[in-house]
Simulated assay, not measured.
Amino acid sequence: MLTPPVPEDVEVWTVPLGAAPGPVPSALGALLDDEERARACRLPDPLRRSRFVTAHAALRTVVGARVGRPPEAVRFTRGPNGKPELADGKGLFVSLSHSHGIALVALAERPVGVDVERLADASAATRIAERCFPPGEFRSVAAAPAGRGPDGRAAVFARLWTRKEACVKAEGGRLGQGLGLWVRGLGPLTVHGRGGALAGPWRVADLTPAPGYAGAVALSGPGPFRVASRCWQPPAGDGGGEKSTSIRELSPAIT
């Protein structure tokens, strides 16, 4: 009898980014490298700038804790399509996504992709699905009720969208390459590429990071994994102190 593979743990950190603009704590800005600070400065909107700094400081903090380095000493390179990759990451792969007031950071020992999206209104979900999704997936979005419940049109659309984008991020590709992926079905599921730049397969699980948001995490290959859900909180005020609060809720194995 074959022994079933042991599921890997994938850390997914939820990061609250704030709902109102305000000064970015210098303790967070100091964790970024020069390129990240330059990108933040190019954002004209104070709220977007604050959220960018917080998301990237969170990424550096959780990665630094995992590899035993200060956050400001973590070094990233960028893949051809902008995916962050650890320089000398020693087998650790990361992914970052943010949407409005939420960011997600994923860490795994195989290539990983994570995505979070705030739920759109039903009419926008229908328009985008008709333009971007395979016909069968568009029909499933259009047939869903217009309400904002877990089975509503906005939620169905966001679930499919985040699955696609998580697969694309795991592969380090471009979103346009992944819109044709067939991701409909009860999760968790294995998604196969259809030739071209995105070969797959990926194992994909849905996430529920916060009310009004949908998320997904994808791991390269068909092997099982389980999600360790954690929450990162920025430090209070502008000083030192604890920079993260770990809430580990290990889900059942995603097989």
Rank of each mutant, 00 (worst) to 15 (best):
P5M: 03
V12H: 00
T14G: 06
P16G: 11
P16F: 08
P21R: 06
A27D: 15
A27G: 15
A30S: 14
D33F: 12
E35G: 14
E35Y: 08
E35V: 13
A40M: 09
S50N: 09
S50G: 15
R51L: 05
F52I: 05
V53T: 14
V62T: 06
V63D: 01
P71E: 02
A73F: 06
T77A: 14
G79W: 06
G82T: 06
K83Q: 15
A87D: 14
K90E: 15
L92M: 09
H98L: 06
S99D: 04
G101W: 05
I102A: 03
R110F: 09
R110T: 13
E117K: 08
D121A: 12
A122E: 04
E130Y: 10
E137N: 08
F138H: 15
F138Q: 13
S140V: 11
G152L: 00
F157W: 07
L160A: 10
R163D: 02
E165D: 08
C167M: 06
V168W: 06
L175K: 11
Q177F: 15
G178C: 12
L179S: 05
V191K: 00
H192S: 07
G193M: 12
R194A: 15
G196M: 05
L198S: 03
V204W: 02
P211E: 09
A214C: 11
R230L: 13
C231S: 13
W232V: 01
